[in-house]
Simulated assay, not measured.
Amino acid sequence: MLIQLAIMGVLAAMLPLAVVWVSSDTNKYRKLVWVTVFLTIDLIMFGAFTRLTDSGLGCPDWPGCYGHANPVQAHAHISAAEAAMPEGPVTVMKAWIEMVHRYLAMGVGVLIIAMMVIAWRMWLKSKRTEHAFSPWLPTFLLGFVCLQGAFGAWTVTLKLQPVIVTTHLLLGMGLLMLLAWLGTRQVVHPPVSPRAVSIRVPAAVALGLLFTQIALGGWVSTNYAALACLDFPLCHGQVVPQMDFENGFTLWRHLGKTADGEFLPFPALTAIHWVHRMFALVVVAYVGWLAFRVRKITGLERAGTWLLVAVGVQFLTGMSTVFLKWPLALAVVHNGGAAVLVLLLTMLNFLARIPSQAAPNRATTRLSAA
């Protein structure tokens, strides 16, 4: 089974690798990094789709499906489980959704391995002088994606325990952040005004706030609290509704239960939803302010505009999910919007430090052209 799963991971990586191979970009390594960034965003969105369709236990074991490499081989087990519990978490469709998510994750892992091998080769070939091909971040990425895979396994074996699923989401966003930093390091950027130094701290704070909001959003999703407030901007017709913060934000507990094993009360779900909603206002206000400030810095105007557009769209999709009663497609887009914001803010944090990065990037271009 493990060999079959490894083959599936390689097959999942074949198309992205083919795109890199046939690309006209002279720097294949840079292309590989950005293709991996794109696939990681896809993986995050498909992970949201898996979670939102209740497919996380479509195959209740890991890494395979009932001990097999794919749902076709496990069809008899899946059919038996579905017959025993027609409304349960195991169906043929949910099994395929869960396994496709795992195949995509393995594909990203294969791409990161390829990236690490190329980085080590190019770095040693340049006699350890080429900063852009430094292999330490790609090597760290391999360890990081293995950690992400471990949390993916615990997500299944611990039956969708909210703190595990939320951590799995945060690690996925962290993987995207690291890949985006590596990708931005490969690009030759236009001159940036020295004023960019002034946004280093605000940009780092914005990224920290965004990850906090993603954690709160993951907590909403994993506790199925998205529809705990069906009106906006009020919640149950009140600015501050009845809430149970103690049970709502107890981290180590089973899905839908309190730490004592009782059913989670509705005021706890309200508290989870309300905190995410209120903190969203803080994030939107801060990132919006930062975007306007960035647009006034020479060389970062486009970065500021894209950031402003992205945070505006994210706010609108967040409100729309409430008004439209959390439609699946819009909820997945909302998760994708969070990933795009991570990408943009990571790139902005890099660009704010561009004076120390520009020289190695130009060297990379000369090396790749040669």
Rank of each mutant, 00 (worst) to 15 (best):
C229W: 11
Y224D: 02
V220G: 08
S221L: 02
G217A: 03
F211I: 04
N223L: 03
A206Y: 05
V220A: 08
G218Y: 11
A228N: 03
A226F: 06
W219P: 04
L216D: 00
Y224A: 01
L230K: 02
R195A: 07
R195P: 10
L216N: 00
S193K: 10
S221F: 02
A203N: 03
L216Q: 02
A203I: 12
P194R: 09
L227P: 10
G217S: 04
N223C: 01
A204S: 05
Q213G: 00
S221W: 01
A206R: 00
F232N: 12
A204D: 01
G208E: 14
Q213W: 00
G217N: 01
C235V: 07
I199D: 14
A203D: 08
F211T: 07
L234A: 12
S193M: 11
V201Y: 13
A196G: 08
L209H: 04
I199P: 14
W219C: 09
I214G: 11
L216P: 00
W219H: 09
V201E: 07
A215D: 06
Q213N: 02
F232W: 15
A215M: 05
A225P: 13
P194E: 06
A225N: 14
A226N: 08
P202F: 07
A204R: 06
A225W: 10
V201G: 07
A226K: 03
V201A: 09
D231Y: 15
A225Y: 14
L234I: 13
V220K: 14
S193I: 05
L234Q: 11
A206G: 05
L210G: 00
A204F: 14
A226Q: 07
L230Q: 03
P233C: 11
V220S: 10
Q213Y: 00
T222S: 13
A226R: 05
T222N: 12
R200N: 11
P194L: 01
W219N: 05
G218W: 08
A206M: 04
L230A: 02
F211E: 06
L207E: 11
C235I: 04
P202A: 12
C229G: 03
C235N: 08
L230T: 03
A196F: 09
A226E: 05
V205R: 06
F232S: 10
I214H: 11
A225C: 13
Q213V: 00
A228R: 01
L216F: 10
R195H: 15
S193A: 13
A196T: 01
A204P: 02
V201F: 14
T212L: 10
A228V: 01
N223P: 03
P202E: 11
A215V: 06
P194H: 09
L209F: 11
S198V: 11
R195V: 13
S198H: 15
A225V: 05
V220Q: 14
A196P: 06
L227Y: 15
A228C: 03
S193Y: 13
I214N: 08
A204M: 08
I199R: 13
A203P: 03
D231C: 06
A204T: 09
